[in-house]
């Protein structure tokens, strides 16, 4: 297993080898259509040790962490945790954040709740 795959397993605490390849995660995901690598493919890639492929996937910022995949997975693989762990590996590297403070002002509007900014910052950068 590569060092990266190992780190992903450790951060996520989830085990992609439990996956029976049913695809229910992708079926349950409300944004699977937007993802270049689908949730079930995340589990599959990790089980095969092909974690490098995942680092540049747009799935990392499409995933909403809504846990529909986690709730409905029949094998307790918790794909949402796997995706977040890959995201962590990316944003923890220097200069790899998906969001910078400079971008924020033009994204704001009067109604936007603080919670949204906090959440986005927590997910998109270290």
């Amino acid at each position: 297993m590569s060092e990266l795959t190992e780190r992903i397993m450790e951060i996520s605490g989830a085990d992609p080898r439990k996956c029976m390849k049913c695809g229910k995660c992708t079926a349950a995901c409300p944004v699977a259509g937007e993802m270049d690598i689908k949730p079930h493919q995340f589990a599959s890639c990790l089980a095969k040790g092909q974690s490098d492929l995942l680092l540049s996937s747009n799935t990392l910022h499409k995933c909403l962490s809504c846990f529909a995949c986690v709730e409905r997975c029949p094998r307790d693989v918790r794909p949402g945790r796997l995706i977040d762990a890959v995201r962590q590996c990316v944003v923890r590297a220097r200069g790899q954040a998906f969001l910078t403070p400079e971008e924020i002002p033009e994204l704001l509007d009067d109604e936007l709740p603080q919670q949204l900014l906090v959440s986005a910052f927590r997910r998109y950068r270290r």
Partner: peptide
Amino acid sequence: VSGSDLIDGKA
């Protein structure tokens, strides 16, 4: 019915 088509790799 929202499902997966794993052969096509899409929902």
